[in-house]
């Protein structure tokens, strides 16, 4: 493991659409302060926003975690459920279980996880129905 520069943990509440995006904005600010290049910041912002919104929309609450190391940025989420029954389906573009209410707000295109995967150099997801979901993404600097 390379040298850790910082770790920030953001609590994300289920259903809190007003605060949604605040943790991602904070992550963007931190990376800017660390003079990370703007293309990598853009990728990190896409990853953190989609992960944060999935916590708000689909989870029962969880954490968004930023870790910055000398050679990489790691953005991860951990939530307390309800988990994903079929991960390969969830990763498919266009697959979404979002309700009509959520869709009317502009969510539910089924693009969030594919966006996360596309913008990460490494992407890991662990989940099972009835337990929580964990996502770990890495961007190399």
């Amino acid at each position: 493991m390379s040298e850790q520069i910082l770790t920030e943990v953001f609590e994300v509440e289920a259903g809190d659409f007003v605060a949604a995006g605040a943790a991602s904005a904070q992550i963007k600010r931190i990376l800017k302060q660390l003079s990370v290049n703007s293309d990598l910041i853009r990728r990190a912002a896409i990853i953190s926003y989609e992960a944060e919104l999935n916590l708000v929309i689909h989870s029962l609450g969880g954490k968004l975690i930023l870790r910055v190391m000398k050679d990489r940025v790691v953005i991860s989420t951990e939530d307390v459920g309800p988990g994903i029954a079929d991960i390969s389906l969830a990763l498919k573009e266009g697959w979404s279980t979002a309700s009509d209410d959520i869709r009317s707000m502009g969510f539910g295109a089924g693009m969030g996880l594919p966006n996360i995967k596309r913008n990460a150099d490494d992407f890991e997801i662990r989940s099972a129905a009835g337990s929580g979901t964990t996502i770990v993404t890495t961007i190399y600097l």
């Binding site: 659409f17 007003v18 949604a20 995006g21 605040a22 991602s24 904005a25 703007s38 853009r42 896409i46 926003y49 989609e50 919104l53 707000m105 502009g106 969510f107 295109a109 089924g110 693009m111 969030g112 966006n115 596309r118």
Partner: peptide
């Protein structure tokens, strides 16, 4: 009007036309 679509394709200095008026538009 699909936020994750715009999140994927958005860029600095872009003008974004959308009928969505909720607070998440501001975040994106």
């Amino acid at each position: 009007d699909l936020l994750s679509w715009v999140m994927a394709r958005g860029k600095a200095d872009m003008a974004w036309v959308t009928v969505q008026t909720n607070i998440n538009v501001v975040a994106v």
